[in-house]
Design a protein around this nucleic acid. Structure first.
Length: 594
RNA sequence: CGGGGCGUAGCGCAGUCUGGUAGCGCACUACACUGGGGGUGUAGUGGUCGUGGGUUCAAAUCCCGCCGUCCCGACCA
């Protein structure tokens, strides 16, 4: 009886999702400022609208999809044993002063004051708040490990918001934090999180890779990023074709794909090169390969306190190689963030100008990239305007003080794991996991008693997923020329029912409405396109494809003559006629299980 | 933060060079027709031309400032 009443209440539902009374805000032309497919489609399908740069309103359709992405993440996080909490968006400056990030973070941190002039920020992340909570609530190793997470709005005053919600100033993130009494426990949870993330992205049917990553300003040691492969991605990721090595290009290492050849050493010569100052122009002028040249870059060093210093440092790379800024600025003695020396400063300290620099008689610290180590008979600047040396050799003519990995990995390089070929692809960073260690527990004094009754700092991990960005990535990877192809788990609706030529036959309305009610009973979220004759069949069909609902049933007099409706699968485009009496079975076997 | 572009109806754009009644397409409203692929026709609604100042008899148009916005780069959990 109860079940029967439940069905009855469904049938009498007043909140039927009828398009005639729903904000289906599709547009034909995409706004001029949309650049990439997902951004254009999100605007065209009426998922979002821009309020200001980097700030978006989620329309009904987009909001439904967003909640579904959240729920998949929530579901998998719960399975991992993490506890969901909710922390304030507005955070007091005191905590950020404790961790020293109040000064470390630049203008990216949204700062504000309350009526009493107290400083606050809009949280870009929540390490400080969670550490504060845990240090107050936890006191024994016996209570650990503990994992907390939240799905929360974050703010970052990005210098350059772009690609719609892909890089916006306000966005939704799932952030999780784990606390441990020792490193072993941290590593255990770290690998559980790695697995959880893989499960989440697999459920979303994404083509993704996890790569070793730089931990950046958040700190810590080990870190992995999860990237959705897409040409529109802002990052470059490097992986070996056998899958044994994967890293963000910022820290990727590899063997050169074209090693330096050994040959008979020749005597060096000073040659006139006129106004040829770039590697490109030198190779053309002398008719040589860029691999036989050496380029010299001059950057600022740092003093003992890590401040910028006017002691310059020379970086030496093979001419065909490019400098990797992230790797370089981690080197001791080099100022971070990396700063190239000005022309005037170089002239003052070396007597040479950019474009004629070389290691011979260069009286500053010289760091050579591995790519130049074995160079033989190479060309480099002579530290005299308009002159270069040819046939230079290290022991005979010039020297360096230190060897380091300074270069950007290039396609076709060989993996350091096993020398299999390296591939470089673009990716969208949708997740990032870190082993923070004691960075925050130390600065914020978060300790517990260990089994010996001794106070010890907690080990921490943190784990983020950009929910809003993840949704955009799904569209970036799942669309065709007609519109979005939602993975069924996050589609705003599973089924769309179109009434076509309803004015010709009252059956169209009654059949489609009963079909709608049946779908609700089966727990299929459906949208009923009941718009009247002013909306042409073409519009209904085209829009249903643009918004990407996975399953579509068209109810029209044409097929009702045969006592049937027409089903179309958005993904495959396959059409089937379904007889009215088979419809429940069909819904169960086709739509419900997808 | 450097370089570049753009701001004219809800959206996409023309008009700016060479100053002289603010236009086109889509959308929207009404009516008629049409009826399975973003229909057709007729008639309409909707604009301080981003903003402030200057030049001029007259400024969307020329000059100066500011703001917004997008792209490239730098930067970035």
């Amino acid at each position: 009886m109860a079940a029967f009443l439940l069905v009855e209440s469904f049938l009498q539902a007043k909140y039927v999702m009828k398009i005639s009374n729903y904000l289906l805000a599709t547009v034909k032309e995409s706004p001029a400022d949309a650049e990439i497919a997902s951004h254009k489609l999100m605007l065209r399908a009426g998922l979002i609208r821009k309020l200001a740069s980097g700030l978006y309103t989620w329309l009904p359709l987009g909001n439904r999809a967003l909640k579904k992405v959240e729920n998949i993440v929530r579901n998998e996080m719960d399975k991992s044993g993490a506890m969901e909490i909710c922390m304030p968006v507005v955070q007091p400056a005191e905590l950020w002063l404790e961790s020293d990030r109040w000064s470390q973070m630049g203008p990216e941190l949204f700062r504000l004051q309350d009526r009493n002039d107290r400083d606050f920020c809009l949280g870009p992340t929540h390490e400080e708040v969670i550490t504060d909570l845990v240090r107050k609530e936890y006191s024994s190793y016996r209570q650990l490990p503990a994992i907390f997470y939240q799905i929360q709005t974050k703010f970052r005053d990005e210098r350059r918001p772009r690609f719609g919600i892909m890089r916006s100033r306000e966005f939704i993130m799932k952030d999780a934090y784990s606390f441990h009494s020792d490193e072993e426990s941290l590593q255990e949870t770290y690998s559980i999180m790695h697995e959880t993330y893989s499960n989440i992205f697999s459920r979303l049917k994404l083509n993704f890779r996890s790569v070793a990553a730089d931990s950046g300003s958040i700190g810590g040691n080990t870190s992995h990023e999860f990237h959705v492969l897409a040409d529109a991605g802002e990052d470059e990721i490097v992986f070996s074709t056998d899958g044994k090595y994967a890293a963000n290009i910022e820290l990727a290492e590899a063997h050169l794909h074209t090693p330096n050849k050994k040959e008979e050493k020749r005597d060096s010569k000073l040659v006139d090169t006129g106004d040829a100052t770039s590697i490109d122009s030198i190779t053309k002028l002398l008719g040589i390969d860029a691999k036989k040249t050496l380029k010299t870059l001059i950057v600022h060093g740092e003093d003992k306190e890590g401040n910028i210093s006017n002691n310059l440092v020379a970086l030496l790379l093979r001419g065909d190689q490019e400098l990797n800024v992230t790797k370089t600025e981690k080197l001791k003695g080099i100022y971070s963030p990396l700063k190239f020396a000005s022309n005037q400063l170089i002239l003052k300290q070396t007597g040479s100008t950019i474009g004629s620099l070389g290691p011979k008689d260069l009286d500053i610290h010289k760091i050579a990239d591995f790519s130049v180590e074995g160079l033989c008979n190479f060309v480099c600047g002579a530290n005299m305007a308009g002159k270069h040396f040819t046939d230079m050799n290290w022991s005979e003519n010039c020297s360096y003080d230190q060897v380091a990995d300074l270069r950007m990995v290039q396609g076709n390089d060989k993996s350091i794991a096993d020398r299999s070929p390296i591939e470089i692809k673009r990716g969208i960073e949708v997740g990032h996991i870190f082993q923070l260690g004691a960075k925050y527990s130390e600065s914020m004094d978060a300790s517990i008693l260990d089994s010996n009754g001794k106070a010890t700092l907690m080990q921490m991990g943190c784990y983020g997923i950009g929910i809003t960005r993840l949704l955009a990535s799904c569209i970036e990877q799942n669309h065709d020329e007609k519109g979005i192809l939602w993975p069924s788990e996050i589609a705003p609706f599973r089924l769309i029912i179109l009434q076509i030529d309803a004015h010709k036959s009252a059956d169209v309305i009654s059949i489609s409405e009963s079909l709608y009610n049946k779908s609700l009973i089966f727990d299929i979220e459906s949208l009923l396109d009941d718009r009247d004759r002013k909306t042409s069949p073409g519009v209904k069909l085209t829009e249903s494809e643009l918004i990407g609902i996975p399953h579509r049933i068209v109810v029209s007099p044409r097929t009702l003559k045969e006592n049937a409706v027409e089903y179309t699968n958005r993904q495959t485009g396959a059409k089937t006629k379904v007889h009215i009496e088979d419809i429940e079975k069909f819904l169960k076997e086709t739509v419900c299980i997808d």
